[in-house]
């Protein structure tokens, strides 16, 4: 845990883990980066557009028996809409992403592509287009490519493992299995990252400290 003044506005900013070197200043929305040399400014973030997501920084829950807390978010958009990826910090320091789109949630974790060893994913990671409907076998389970598109960062908040500035554009491929397993591959230039997980519900996560939304009864889970 490291608390420093924001180099732009002087407001105190806290970094919880060296694995999460990025932070958006709550006050001036500067995208800050922590390094051995101190804290620098990577760019200017944008205000998050109004939404009625039930998740907020500080929402807590459990996934597969492990407690987590939401500490950051990136809002992405594509041609036909936008969605949230909430960064969840787990006990022990690992992190996962709680994706929120169309009212559904999925929890995914980054996995090295080399470990996944899927010819189809390797092909896409090397620059080939992903074709919806095509199958990729991962850990003996068949996943189908649900969609593939260019996505752009709209805004971010809280702590993050990377610099996500407005306008940052990557190629994103979603995969789904019949079991409810969900995965995605993200590509920027010749770099690619793979995230693997499954659909979840807030009830299943025993989510608490949800965002209060006017006129709606907040459910109590767990």
């Amino acid at each position: 845990m490291l608390t420093l003044p924001c180099p732009n506005c002087g407001a105190p900013v806290t970094f919880r883990s060296p694995a999460l070197p990025n932070r958006v200043c709550d006050h001036c929305r500067s995208m800050l980066v922590r390094s051995d040399a101190g804290v620098g400014i990577a760019g200017q973030g944008a205000a998050l557009p109004f939404d009625v997501s039930p998740i907020q920084i500080g929402t807590r829950g459990r996934f597969d028996g492990r407690a987590f807390e939401v500490i950051g978010r990136v809002r992405w958009s594509w041609d036909d809409g936008s969605w949230n990826e909430w960064l969840c910090l787990f006990e022990g320091g690992a992190h996962g992403w709680l994706g929120e789109a169309m009212g559904d949630f999925m929890m995914t974790f980054e996995r090295p592509l080399a470990e996944v060893r899927s010819a189809e994913l390797d092909r896409i990671a090397r620059g080939a287009p992903a074709l919806p409907g095509r199958k990729a076998e991962i850990d003996g389970e068949e996943l189908a490519i649900a969609d593939a598109r260019q996505v752009s960062c709209i805004a971010a908040e809280g702590e993050l493992p990377f610099t996500a500035l407005p306008g940052w554009t990557i190629y994103s491929v979603d995969l789904k299995a019949a079991s409810g397993r969900a995965a995605s591959l993200q590509r920027e230039g010749d770099e690619a990252w793979f995230y693997d997980g499954r659909y979840v519900t807030l009830a299943e996560l025993s989510a608490n400290n949800l965002r209060a939304i006017e006129g709606w009864t907040m459910p109590r889970y767990g």
Partner: peptide
């Protein structure tokens, strides 16, 4: 941090 206790509006015009 904004007041966490204040409920977020539910709709936008």
């Amino acid at each position: 941090m904004a007041d966490a206790a204040v409920a977020q509006p539910a709709a936008k015009a």
